[in-house]
Deep mutational scan, measured.
Amino acid sequence: GPIITTQVTIPKDLAGSIIGKGGQRIKQIRHESGASIKIDEPLEGSEDRIITITGTQDQIQNAQYLLQNSVKQY
């Protein structure tokens, strides 16, 4: 399918649970989903961080599912 980009906003407090120790968790999510995932640095004074996910519809759905699971375990 076509490559698309979607953005998800997360509270910055949850960023740690998604990134994992030394970036292990986010690497695993990238690997498992096949999507490209970029977590922006939090904006000055903002409570949120923006996650940019790029890939096919399937890859993005996979990545979103894995991201949600990471947050739930936290």
Rank of each mutant, 00 (worst) to 15 (best):
S36M: 15
L43I: 08
P42A: 06
A35M: 00
Y74I: 09
T6D: 06
V8F: 03
V8T: 04
R25M: 15
N69E: 13
R30D: 10
R30I: 09
E47L: 07
G20Y: 12
I53A: 01
I26E: 06
T6M: 08
N62H: 15
P2S: 15
S33T: 11
K12R: 11
T5L: 01
Q57F: 03
T56Y: 05
G55P: 00
I60W: 00
Q61L: 04
R30Y: 14
I19A: 06
I50Q: 14
Q28I: 08
G1P: 02
S46H: 12
Y65P: 05
L43G: 09
K21L: 12
I60K: 01
I26Y: 04
Y74C: 14
Q68H: 04
G16R: 11
L43N: 14
T6R: 10
G16N: 12
Q59T: 04
G45H: 08
Q73T: 06
G55N: 00
R30A: 14
Q28K: 15
G34Q: 08
Q7I: 02
D13F: 04
P2Y: 04
I39M: 15
L66H: 03
G45D: 12
G22Q: 13
K21E: 10
Y65W: 06
T5H: 04
D40Q: 14
Q28V: 05
I60C: 06
H31Q: 10
S36K: 15
K72P: 15
Q61N: 11
S17H: 11
P2D: 15
G22W: 11
G23Q: 06
I26W: 07
E44T: 07
V8N: 03
I39F: 13
L14K: 10
P2M: 14
D48S: 09
Y65M: 11
N69V: 10
K72F: 02
D13V: 05
E32H: 03
D58P: 09
K27Y: 09
I3E: 09
K21N: 15
G22P: 15
A63E: 00
R25K: 10
G23D: 14
G22M: 14
I26H: 04
Y74M: 14
V8D: 15
I18R: 03
I10W: 15
K72N: 12
A15K: 03
A15R: 02
I19R: 09
I51V: 14
A35P: 00
A15E: 05
T9V: 04
Q57L: 03
I3D: 11
Y65A: 15
Q24L: 05
I50A: 12
P42K: 13
I39V: 11
T6N: 03
K12C: 05
P2E: 15
I10G: 01
K72T: 13
I53M: 07
G20W: 05
Y65F: 11
I60D: 00
P11T: 05
G22N: 10
S33D: 01
E47Y: 07
G20I: 15
G16A: 09
G20S: 12
L43E: 11
G45I: 04
G34Y: 01
G22I: 15
G22C: 11
D48L: 07
R25N: 05
A15F: 09
T6G: 01
Q7A: 05
K27W: 05
I29L: 10
P42E: 08
R30M: 15
E32Y: 02
R30K: 06
T56A: 09
I51T: 07
Q28R: 13
T6W: 00
T9W: 01
S70R: 11
I29N: 02
Q68Y: 03
P2V: 12
I10C: 04
V8P: 00
S70Y: 05
K21G: 14
G55V: 00
Q57S: 09
Q61H: 11
I37R: 00
E44G: 07
T5W: 00
T56P: 02
S17D: 05
D40K: 07
K21H: 07
I39P: 05
K27F: 08
V71T: 08
A35K: 00
I39H: 08
G23S: 12
S36V: 14
G1C: 08
